[in-house]
Amino acid sequence: MKLRVSPKPAAFSACAAMAARVFCGLSVDCVSPGYAAWLSAIIGAALSVPVLWMYGHVSVVGGRTARTAFQGFILAASLTGSAVTMADIAHSAGYLALDRVAPAVLLLPAALALFWCITRNGDSIGYAAMIWARLFALLLLIVVILQFPYYRPEWLRPILGSGWSTVARNAVRAAGWFCTIGGIWIFREDGGEGRSGKNAILLSCAVSGAIAALLLALHAMLAPAFYSGAALSWQLRLDALLTNGRTPLYLQMPMIILWYGGLFHLLGCEGFAAAMLLQQMAPRLDGRVCAGAVTLCASALALSGFTGSRLLALLIRYQYIAAAGFCAIVAARGGLQTCADA
């Protein structure tokens, strides 16, 4: 079984995943969610555009070694991303009802879903993202209508939150996610070259950045960031997002569906990207074997506690810088080589 994805499904899948990852990363996955996360999402999207643009050059001028190295980088990022998403799913399930269930048991359905999802292949994931885009819009509309009386726009101010440094730090993290998830374009079946491919990158970045910013702003208007800056527990972070307490509880079902739906699509996209890259790096492996390997690795990472470690937080902070630096070096060397050849 060959794992592959066509351009349009890849764009939709990556768009859904980017929005979900940035929203999770700057709200629930953040131990001290700050103000102005919505601004960071927008800046992050803008920062990621040149790097995603440069991805095309990596495969053109970088040669096989550079391409393989970059595949490895995106594979590692996608794998850890899948693990983080699986941990998010397990935490959410624990928060909502299953707090007495062992984490391994909580991860099982997510792992099986991931395996099933990867073996359906890339186009199915993309088609699912297309349908999800419509459902998402409908569910979000319902959520906004239900929660409308409880939004407090004034909680978005001061506009820069904790200050430029926090905004910039979060923007760099967001840009890292945009860049790693955007890697699915460049390493898809027919490559990422061409004008339409670049336009798709720009459009997807803009759309996912806008969606993530909107979601973060809505979240901030419903539950203000805490000034203490102390690390908040999973319980409180999910409390602020899912049940919140300011709206009637029985109206929270659309929000929960929205949350799980976003996480599953994110898991599918990241898991598939990891499996596809694994197969590209080891072409003899069957797609199902790659799917199994990715599922096992992501589950193991999620269970190991690595997803909540400081090391991972540090790596995520610098993944954008790593991607941008790598692209810049490859592009510069390629450019020099081109000049020498000329």
Binding site: P158, I159, G161, G163
Partner: peptide, 8 residues
């Protein structure tokens, strides 16, 4: 608060 740029 809206007249300030940062929480600090």
């Amino acid at each position: 608060a809206g007249r300030f740029l940062t929480t600090g």
